[in-house]
Design a protein around this nucleic acid. Sequence first.
DNA 1: CGACATATTGAGATCCATCAACCAATGTGG
DNA 2: CCACATTGGTTGATGGATCTCAATATGTCG
Lengths: 188, 188
Amino acid sequence: MQFHIDKINKLLDDFDEATLKALEEISYSKTYEKGSYLLKADNICTKSFFLKSGILRKFYLHNEKDVTTEFYFKGDLAVSFDSYTLQRPSKEYLQALTDVTVNTIEFNSFQNLKKKHLQLQELDFLITEYHALWLEEKVFELHTQNATQRYETLIKKSPHIVHQIPLTQIASYLNVSLETLSRIRAKK
Amino acid sequence: MQFHIDKINKLLDDFDEATLKALEEISYSKTYEKGSYLLKADNICTKSFFLKSGILRKFYLHNEKDVTTEFYFKGDLAVSFDSYTLQRPSKEYLQALTDVTVNTIEFNSFQNLKKKHLQLQELDFLITEYHALWLEEKVFELHTQNATQRYETLIKKSPHIVHQIPLTQIASYLNVSLETLSRIRAKK
DNA sequence: CGACATATTGAGATCCATCAACCAATGTGG
DNA sequence: CCACATTGGTTGATGGATCTCAATATGTCG
């Protein structure tokens, strides 16, 4: 996985002046207050959010409970993937867990820019590949690990999550009840 | 999802003569006997397989049991995604469940061809997107559905799987024990 | 038919969700 | 600055879903 991140960073380092400038021209900075929504269900995800500071979470509602699908930190790129890709209504919400500053790029602007800048096509491709690899790992973990193991994997991969985010949301991210997660932690 | 498949088909319909011809030149047909392996774990997945006839399955070993990750039918494209993408050793096996005929394309040949043919870049991108969408759906199902519901979803989405494939493998695909799946079916 | 793979059924064990009570920390209105 | 509400977390008891182990049945093919 790290290998793939390096690939993306290398591409970014090699970006043409022109490409960089064009990207800057279509992106704009925005801040959101803690608790507010960058995207709500039933709306189309027409923007991508590059997180400059703060924490985001993505979730959907299922049987009146929320299921957290991702946390985003500084440097992460947040979208509701299927809504963004297919430009259809989202099942997911994007919410600010803290005050947040993002660089925003409109889907349409980016698509237009891609036509002129081959490096952006490459970038988009690598990011999509990365997302798919990430999802494969997630499915693998859901298939092979129990609640305790999933929690341990999370700690190993993203120790910062455990320190900055309420247990309730971590539990829903791990697909475990709050109580079970609490017990898992008590055992150590 | 269907929308995205249509998008891919439309692109294929619009392919240049030159692109089509180049593709044909680097692909070759091959047959495998029932039970044989197109890819084994620890090897790098250097080929993609376009299935012309027969059935394939993809799986990995975990605690001495196999976990089936996918079935492939006529018209499907089979690779071990992370091994193919990163060109690193595979955790997964690709096995012929029946006698099988595939069109094979080498990873390297395809990458070279992509440089010259923009339409192939587009195709690769759309296929990767499709794979990611597919995985998102799978994670969603694992999070929200119990064994019975997952089985029903499978029947609805891929009724042919249930008729042509041993229960043992369907069970491991659904992440359910053989016994539980057998009971689920008995209840109907 | 006999042998081997595949599927069904039963009984007990295990993991985890749910429900409910409780506690601690934080915030808020009066 | 206190009383109370709210949020987040812990703990206990119970039940349900599903796994595991074991016995039996069914199917298939040389």
